[in-house]
Design a protein around this nucleic acid. Structure first.
Lengths: 262, 262
DNA sequence: GAGTGGTCTAGACCACCAC
DNA sequence: TGGTGGTCTAGACCACTCT
């Protein structure tokens, strides 16, 4: 860490809490580049002596910055300015038919674009009654069975996304869609082979803090929200043939969409 | 609060930290609906006696849930299960020409759809040299001036979104675009009157935790991320005529997009 | 005034990491 | 082995809200 990070003084008589003032100093140091990605912050002990505060006061300042996603603490090593992961851009044409025709699934395209090795794990296929939210989107009754494909995607061994797909059982049963590996082009290619040529998708994007379970599955540090993408695929008959619920680390993605001005 | 929320026991010998176990209990109570939106949680004093822990241990449990966006603490009142704000759905046709032709700006359409009263404040118009990110998208040189329109949008008096628009100065100077109130249909209608008929937009969506400044301007409680939307407008000549950088509370919006399957 | 959460102190023991 | 962050205790004083 650079020496001047701790040089500023604290005003204990100020209305602003001491830990917030310390956080302000450190935040400014990061914003101005005096502390760059990967740099180590002063240790808690150093902050105690330099600012003349108790340990909890120093820790509260660090917690604030951690919640803002600016720093990460590593047990036994120190506290570091968070290195932003390389941002992957998801273009709105990533489900275009031309990719399927080339035998590539959407995630493989993404991996290829970033020169990374794609991988899938925690894959399960089952049959179940869908959540009401899913049944609504598929326009099926609440007690119609669906085929459920759940999996986690990794790039270069690091988890980046979990996804769970729901397809009407009458449409997927007895097809390669129920195989763990559905073959080239993914399940969309199989759907088209079954006569369900795809016409359009809708994608609903929301963002929130992860559940502890999601944070675990995506190896998320504190202070990083997740995107939730709910994609519905429609065939040329206007039938909803799949709903896919995806959770992604929000700091690793930018979602790009094209909007016509009509 | 219901009495049974505190009934479960803590295992101090467990590997899992006591405050995490307490957080697990409370999280489960919320997930199962035993604690509903707006319900008050046990006070810190109650948690200390019931669980037999120090105050900081109880507070750490609450902090965890606050960071997950599940609860909010109100000084002097208590801690409550967060009531989710009504979610507004932003459709991908919200910048369609037909709306401008009716003299309506996109935000007014949104307000109308939700039966809310739209309002704009903190509005400033100025001229400046744009950030490199903006100059890139406008395909202008780094030192070309732009007209900058900054404002905050409110629904029923509550702030929901801040936006800052950048337009090439040679295109906006001397037009109503530099007026605080640009007139019916907003600046897009004025651009079209100047001969820049709009053809398409691109929208880049990211999400992160807010800066303290953003949290203040949007009155965000802890544990709520923000969406950042960077929209670029293109006219029928393919020229980028505006870049708009928008920050929104992520818990109040779902962004809906249509994707062709090609 | 009683009860709530917000801030701060001064200590303790532990788990993890690097040397 | 020494330094780091993680957890926990037992107190204190304060600001805010409600009655």
């Amino acid at each position: 860490m650079s020496a001047d990070v701790l040089s500023q003084a604290i005003d204990p008589a100020s209305d602003r809490a001491v830990y917030k003032q310390i956080a302000d100093h450190l935040r400014a140091a990061i914003a101005q580049g005096r502390l760059g990605a990967g740099d180590q912050l002063p240790s808690e002990a150093q902050m105690m002596t330099h600012y003349g505060v108790a340990r909890m006061t120093a820790r509260n300042a660090l917690r604030l910055l951690q919640d803002e996603g600016l720093i990460t603490a590593e047990h036994g090593r120190g506290v570091y300015v968070r290195a932003r992961p390389p941002v992957r851009r998801l273009a709105s044409d990533r489900f275009a038919q031309r990719h399927r025709k080339e035998g590539k699934a959407a995630f493989d395209i993404e991996a290829e674009q970033h020169g990374a090795t794609p991988q899938v794990d925690m894959l399960t296929v089952s049959e179940a009654i869908p959540p009401a939210e899913v049944a609504d989107r598929l326009k099926i009754s609440d007690n119609s069975p669906v085929v459920v494909r759940s999996r986690r995607y990794l790039l270069d061994g690091k988890p980046v996304e979990t996804a769970i797909s729901f397809l009407p059982a009458d449409l997927a049963r007895g097809t390669p869609i129920t195989d763990p590996n559905p073959g080239p082009g993914g399940i969309y290619a199989r759907l088209e082979e079954q006569g369900h040529t795809l016409e359009r998708f809708t994608e609903e994007v929301s963002a929130r803090m992860p559940t502890p379970e999601e944070a675990r599955r995506l190896a998320l540090p504190p202070g990083v929200p997740v995107f939730r993408l709910v994609r519905t695929a429609y065939d040329i008959d206007g039938r909803a043939v799949e709903v896919c619920d995806t959770i992604m680390a929000a700091d690793a993605y930018v979602l790009a969409y094209d909007l016509p001005a009509h």
